[in-house]
Every structure is written in structure tokens, then in C-alpha cells.
Simulated assay, not measured.
Amino acid sequence: EVEPRYKQDMADIKFCLSVIKPEHSEVIKRYYSDKFITWEEVVSEAGKSYSQLRTWHNDFKTLLNVITQHGVEFIRLRREALQA
């Protein structure tokens, strides 16, 4: 059972992973799934450049930060857009 204070964090992370490209999502999941893996190992496994994967990672962190800071506002805007 997950502590209630972490449930929203997990929901935010899952949402962010669901809206980015699948290839990007796999890289992010790989990095965070193993606390012993280095970023260099993820880069090597993915067969992409370091800078490209670092950009994906930074973009994910930025998106997650925006969602955690403004999530309620995004939900409201989405509902309004769907009703229009």
C-alpha cells in the first residue's frame, strides 16, 4: 500500500510518462527503474547520443515540475477545452 502523500506524486509521474513519446518514456523508465544504473549505461543501451537523452530527461523533469506546480489549473483548462 502506497502512503497517501505519495499517491498524487505517482499519478503525476504516470501522467507525464503517458504523454511523452514512447521512446522517451522507455529511457526515463529505464533510468529510474534501477538505482544502480548510470546515465551513461542508459545512453549506451539506448544507442542514442548523450545530449539527446539528456534533453529527453530534462524535458521530462520540466513537464513533471509544471504538472506538480499547476496540475489543478491544467485539469480545469482541459475540462473547458473538452466542453467547447
Rank of each mutant, 00 (worst) to 15 (best):
E26R: 11
C16R: 03
K35S: 12
S44H: 12
S25C: 12
R78A: 15
P22T: 05
V19S: 07
S44G: 07
K21V: 05
L53D: 03
V2Y: 06
V42K: 00
I37F: 04
S25W: 00
S51I: 08
K21A: 15
V42W: 01
A46H: 01
L64H: 02
R5V: 08
Y32G: 01
E23W: 03
I75D: 15
E80D: 14
Q83G: 09
F36S: 12
K7A: 12
E3C: 07
S44F: 10
M10T: 11
W56N: 01
I37E: 06
R76Y: 11
K14M: 14
A81S: 12
A11G: 09
G47W: 04
Y31P: 02
E3N: 13
W56C: 02
T68E: 12
E41K: 04
W39T: 00
L82M: 14
H57Q: 06
I75E: 10
R79I: 10
T55G: 08
E73S: 15
E23D: 08
R79Q: 13
V19L: 00
I37P: 02
F15E: 03
Y32P: 00
D12F: 04
R30W: 07
E23S: 08
A84Q: 14
E80Y: 08
P4I: 07
V43M: 07
H70D: 15
A81L: 14
A84N: 15
H24L: 08
Q8L: 14
K14P: 07
D9M: 11
A46V: 05
A81D: 13
Y6M: 13
H57W: 05
E80G: 07
L53W: 02
E26L: 07
V43A: 04
S33C: 02
H24N: 10
F74C: 09
Y31D: 01
E3P: 06
K21I: 02
